[in-house]
Design a binder for these strands. Structure first.
Length: 921
DNA sequence: CTGCGAAAGGTAGCTTTGACGTTG
DNA sequence: GCAACGTCTTTGCTACCTTTCGCA
């Protein structure tokens, strides 16, 4: 059995995604994403869509036709289609403008081969007009979330790939060989500080530059090698080289990347982007889908050849961490496939423009406009990442970059000047306990973590996910760089899912960057105070009415906080109040501290769903502040409270479902008017709570008014029931003590027969016909009767099964009898009034009917007989049998019959293939 | 131009314990 | 005559999210 690789899983997931997208929008042919092997590309139309190595879209999903249509079209035809759409009816246009992918087909990539991946994107260029805004449906949201998740996984895979390339001993050795001797001393510094990194960063920035063009068809490692050789490369490559250099110098270093993923929510703006992209695409970037196919590089000199000649020689001596064996990492396969491809001329120009801007850190309007004019962020970025990750996850050897990838990298997706990549170096000499120091060699910034958000914001890059890669693992460090968490919180994926995804990667990362840090009590106090002060200073907003830097940690001493976190993370506390912590756990603590010390937002709307703070005006109907203190500050005159003070209220019935009941004499915290259309008889229980007249209102209670549910205990075998004679079993907690819930069908018959007291178990409601209907599942009985009932139930079920079987048999016999009687009657009528030629058939049928007159379903009890047809001959016993008999009369010769001693079944066969099984009575 | 606040509009989710005719 | 079963019909309110617009 073939082991499912990560590549398989990834392809499958993306395939499913594309399938979903297709399914939803077969009609509107807007986009055509065709991920296929080079052989399947449009250059070789002889190979059709039905190749075996393609992951065909399941025809059951109703997309086959759609898919086939698309595949049969040439790019030219699609462009023509696009042109004709200008005259499309408004309805059609709306469909066409719908945001969906079309016709994705994913090849099953063989990780042992080195096939490049080609993505074809041909869009119908005519969708400039904005469609009327349509609210996203639940399905849209689900799809957007899926896309978001897949994109995240793809980018994680990409990051890991780059991280592993940074560990390449060849690259590290080469970098070391280039480094001036005096800079080598950095590796000897024991208490490394950010300042010590400056000369290194400056040297790096002077020697390596972001360049304006890339060659495409090669793995990331080869690209890195090429960048090393030419001392020019994409920002990703340059940063990766810096990481490799730091690692070569024995500095604990991570590669950091902003995962700029597709939106988590179906974005109405996306349609605009798509359509704008489409028009731009038609204007020259992707003039035809064939442009996307790699062209052979005529002037190709393998970048590795010259690189390796001088690098390999001294690798073993120079590399401080690698070994010679990884020389193999440049497989012959990789090298032979490293032929780059020339980039189309107009593309080159545009890329030059964009990257020239980038290299010069030019974030000017002119530059932005230029780049945005060629392509917008978002969708093509996503496609690029998708294809990169697909190729990346398809296998280690399959790291060929696609030309479209390289093109996108520079033309469109890059946010000019945007810090998408940087490094983090662990400096033991910083902050007493050590610190991860931000190092951006592209912009020559050291320790500028607080600048990242502003830079990203200036370049329209969302700082939703900042992930650090090391040791093939990854860790989310967004908190360190994102100061306004509330802005990104809703745009991040469900944290449970994300944490689960990252958990194994985080371990790998911690393993690679781990180190123990010893602290004593004073150190913790001072370091945390230092952090708190710094956070307050850095994050403090002068526009706020009151800024309480440390809003949530009210009342707790720093040491207490640290200890509190220590419980959650792996900090070991010894008797004398000194701690031994790993770097990873210390960082967790730091990030957690940041999470809890976020400054108060200045706009009211931010408090609607803020994780830490709340103001009363944005509470919902079922929320109150309890206790209504402390006030952490003010926003536009509204007092700000900790989110932890926001309590959700519920009705008694709702609390009951959670196994809680309202304490005696507790008054409702809040009363809501009942809907006028739902007049309800007042609950008799209401009078117990204060005696007020609550008719027409919904009484809500808070968590602090509750106690564990005390239901009356079952006594003398009697189950305590509600006023309807039932037990509401919302959960196990709702069962009266001494009772059990038996969720078995028809079990109440047994209880009734045994005369045991029981109550139907109501487990929920079903809304049907505009009305609620209770759902019952099983019964509630006293625990002492459980065994007796179960025993009787088993017997009862056996008996029932036997009876049912018997009933079925009787039915079958009866039906057979009816059928045969009908046939006989028909034959008799035919004999009497029809053609004389059928007389013989009649005799035959009568003979058969004698055989089967008492036939039934064969069940091995020796009581019945079965007539059945065998072989290919299609004999029928109904009216068609007459016609059949005209052609052939079955003859059952004795030598053709067989008898099975065990089952006592005699099989008679006619030479035509017809057979009859006769079970003798 | 950007960001904020307020208002408007629309969707999703919550709601929550029959009546009556036919068949066996 | 009675119990079991199937079918009828397919709510309507409102919290909350999103968009739009005006203003600073």
């Amino acid at each position: 059995m073939r082991v499912r690789t990560l590549a398989d899983i990834s392809e499958e997931a993306v395939g499913r995604l594309l399938k979903r997208a297709n399914k939803r929008n077969c009609s509107g042919k807007k986009k055509h994403v065709n991920i296929s092997s080079r052989h399947d590309s449009i250059d070789t139309p002889a190979i059709g869509p039905n190749r075996n190595d393609k992951l065909d879209v399941d025809p059951r999903d109703g997309v086959e036709g759609c898919n086939r249509d698309a595949l049969q079209k040439t790019a030219g035809e699609e462009r023509l289609d696009g042109g004709s759409m200008q005259n499309a009816s408004p309805e059609n246009e709306n469909e066409l403008n719908d945001l969906d992918w079309e016709d994705g087909s994913i090849p099953i990539l063989d990780s042992t081969t080195n096939l490049p991946v080609t993505i074809e994107i041909s869009e119908t260029p005519n969708s400039n007009r904005r469609k009327p805004s349509r609210r996203a449906s639940a399905e849209d949201k689900e799809l957007a979330e899926l896309v978001h998740k897949v994109h995240l996984l793809c980018l994680l895979a990409r990051g890991r790939l780059i991280d592993s390339a940074c560990d390449d001993p060849l690259i590290q050795a080469s970098l070391l060989s280039l480094l001036p001797k005096h800079l080598l001393n950095v590796s000897k510094v024991t208490q490394l500080t950010a300042t010590a990194l400056y000369p290194l960063v400056h040297w790096f920035q002077n020697n390596f530059h972001v360049r304006s063009s890339t060659s495409a068809e090669r793995s990331f490692r080869l690209g890195l090698a090429s960048a090393l050789e030419t001392r020019e490369g994409t920002p990703e490559e340059i940063v990766a080289l810096s990481v490799a250099l730091f690692r070569a110098l024995n500095l604990t270093t991570r590669f950091l990347s902003i995962l700029d993923v597709a939106s988590l929510k179906p974005d109405a703006g996306e349609s605009e982007i798509f359509s704008q992209d489409a028009s731009r695409l038609s204007n020259g970037i992707f003039k035809s889908s064939t442009l996307m196919v790699a062209r052979p590089n005529k002037a190709s000199v393998s970048p590795v050849k010259s690189f390796s000649s001088n690098a390999i020689d001294n690798i073993c001596e120079t590399s401080q961490r690698g070994s010679c064996k990884s020389r193999d990492s440049y497989s012959a396969c990789d090298i032979t496939q490293s032929e780059g491809s020339s980039v189309a001329g107009d593309l080159d120009n545009k890329m030059s423009d964009s990257l020239a801007c980038e290299a010069g850190h030019d974030t000017s309007e002119e530059c932005l406009t230029k780049v945005q004019g060629t392509k917008r962020k978002g969708d093509l970025e996503f496609e690029r990442q998708l294809e990169i990750a697909l190729s990346a996850t398809a296998g280690v050897t399959l790291e060929n970059k696609i030309q479209s990838n390289a093109r996108d990298l520079d033309v469109g997706s890059r946010k000019v000047g945007s810090p998408l990549y940087w490094a983090e170096v662990y400096c033991c000499g910083e902050n007493l306990t050590g610190k991860w120091v931000h190092v951006d060699v592209v912009n020559a910034v050291v320790d500028g973590e607080q600048k990242v958000e502003a830079m990203a914001a200036a370049c329209k890059t969302s700082l939703r996910y900042v992930v650090a890669f090391a040791g093939r693992g990854a860790k989310d460090v967004t908190r360190r760089y994102c100061m306004k968490w509330y802005r990104i919180a809703s745009r991040r994926v469900n944290s449970i899912w994300w944490d689960a995804v990252l958990a194994p990667l985080k371990e790998l990362e911690a393993g690679a960057t781990g180190g123990m840090v010893h602290m004593d009590k004073q150190q913790i106090e001072s370091s945390t105070e230092h952090k708190k002060e710094k956070t307050s200073r850095e994050l403090g907003n002068p526009n706020q009415d009151v800024v309480t830097g440390d809003a949530i940690l009210h009342g707790m001493s720093t040491l207490e906080v640290v200890k509190e976190y220590g419980k959650k993370i792996d900090i070991e506390s010894s008797v004398n109040d000194s701690f031994v912590a790993t770097r990873s756990s210390l960082e967790d603590m730091e990030l957690e501290t940041r999470a809890l010390t976020e400054p108060l937002p200045t706009n009211q709307q931010a408090y609607r769903n803020h994780q830490l703070y709340a103001i009363e005006r944005w509470l919902t109907k079922y929320q109150v502040l309890y206790p209504k203190a402390p006030v952490l500050g003010f926003c536009s005159g509204h007092p700000v409270y900790p989110r932890s003070c926001v309590q959700t209220l519920k009705t008694k019935e709702r609390w009951l479902r959670e196994g809680l009941q309202v304490k005696a004499h507790e008054l409702p915290v809040k009363e809501l008017k009942r809907s006028v259309r739902l007049p309800r008889v007042s609950d008799p229980e209401d009078d117990e709570c204060g005696g007020g007249n609550y008719e027409g209102t919904i009484q809500l209670y808070g968590k602090w008014q509750l106690e564990a549910l005390h239901l009356p205990r079952a006594v003398n075998g009697i189950v305590p029931k509600n006023e309807r004679g039932q037990v509401e079993v919302w959960s196990e907690k709702c069962l009266p003590p001494g009772t059990v819930h038996l969720r078995l069908p028809r079990v109440f018959y047994v209880a009734k027969r045994l005369e045991i007291d029981y109550a139907p178990a109501m487990v929920g409601f079903e809304f049907r016909n505009g009305r609620s209907h209770p759902i019952f599942d099983g019964i509630v009985v006293c625990a002492e009767f459980k065994d007796a009932i179960l025993e009787a139930y088993v017997e009862e079920e056996e008996r029932r099964e036997v009876e049912e079987k018997k009933r079925n048999e009787m039915q079958a016999i009866s039906r057979w009898y009816q059928l045969l009687c009908s046939i006989i009657t028909r034959q008799r009528l035919n004999n009497r009034y029809g053609e004389s030629s059928l007389a013989q058939t009649s005799t035959d049928i009568q003979r058969n009917s004698r055989l089967c007159a008492h036939a039934g379903v064969c069940d091995g009890d020796g009581q019945s007989r079965v007539c059945q047809q065998e072989g290919t001959h299609s004999a029928k016993l109904d009216s068609s049998s007459a016609a059949l008999s005209e052609d052939h009369e079955h003859v059952f010769l004795t030598e053709n019959q067989s008898f099975d001693d065990e089952s006592l079944v005699l099989i008679k066969r006619c030479h035509c293939g017809f057979s009859v099984q006769v079970e003798e009575l």
